[in-house]
C-alpha cells in the first residue's frame, strides 16, 4: 500500500499523464533547467482485461506510451509515463513530477494540477450528463384489467 505521500504523488502523476498535452504546455510553458536521466522513449504497454469483467486476466491489446525521467539540479528525480507518442508531454510531466517534490509544490498544485483536475472533472461531468439524457425512463401503460 503506498504511503500518504505516495498516494498524493500517484494522483498528480495520473493527472499529468491524462492531461491534454497542449493544455499542459499552456499551463506550464517554461521548464526550469534539468538533466535528462532517460530521454523520452516511445513504447507500448499491453493492456489487460479480465474474463467476465472480474475473472482471470487476458491480453486485450497494446497502447502507445511515452516515458521519461529527469533530475533537477537540486536533486529531486521526476518520472513520467504518459499515453500516446508526445515526447514533449512526457518530458514536461516528468519535470513537473520532480518539481512537485520541492517547495514549488504548493504553487504548482494551484497553477497546474488543480486546473487540470477541475477541467477533467468538468469534461467527465458533461459527458455523464449527456449519457444521463439518454437514460430510458420506463413507464407502464394502462392495462385493460386495471379498469
Amino acid at each position: 500500500m503506498p504511503s500518504p505521500d505516495a498516494e498524493a504523488r500517484r494522483a498528480w502523476i495520473a493527472t499529468l499523464a491524462k492531461a491534454p498535452p497542449a493544455r499542459l504546455a499552456e499551463l506550464m510553458p517554461e521548464l526550469p533547467p534539468h538533466d535528462v536521466l532517460r530521454s523520452p522513449e516511445i513504447g507500448a504497454v499491453m493492456v489487460r482485461g479480465r474474463t467476465g469483467g472480474t475473472g482471470a486476466a487476458f491480453n486485450l491489446g497494446e497502447m502507445t506510451v511515452t516515458r521519461c525521467s529527469v533530475r533537477l539540479p537540486a536533486g529531486p528525480v521526476g518520472h513520467a509515463w504518459v499515453q500516446g507518442r508526445d515526447k514533449a508531454h512526457a518530458r514536461r510531466a516528468a519535470v513537473i513530477d520532480a518539481l512537485m517534490q520541492t517547495d514549488a509544490a504548493q504553487d504548482l498544485t494551484a497553477r497546474v494540477i488543480a486546473p487540470l483536475q477541475a477541467e477533467a472533472a468538468a469534461h467527465r461531468a458533461a459527458r455523464a450528463e449527456k449519457a444521463a439524457g439518454t437514460k430510458v425512463e420506463f413507464f407502464t401503460m394502462v392495462r385493460g384489467e386495471d379498469k
Partner: peptide, 17 residues
C-alpha cells in the same frame, strides 16, 4: 515498439459509461 510493461487488468466496473 519496445514493450515497456503490461497493465493491471482494467476495471470495467469503474467505467465512465
Amino acid at each position: 515498439l519496445p514493450r515497456l510493461a503490461g497493465s493491471r487488468p482494467v476495471d470495467t466496473a469503474a467505467m465512465a459509461v
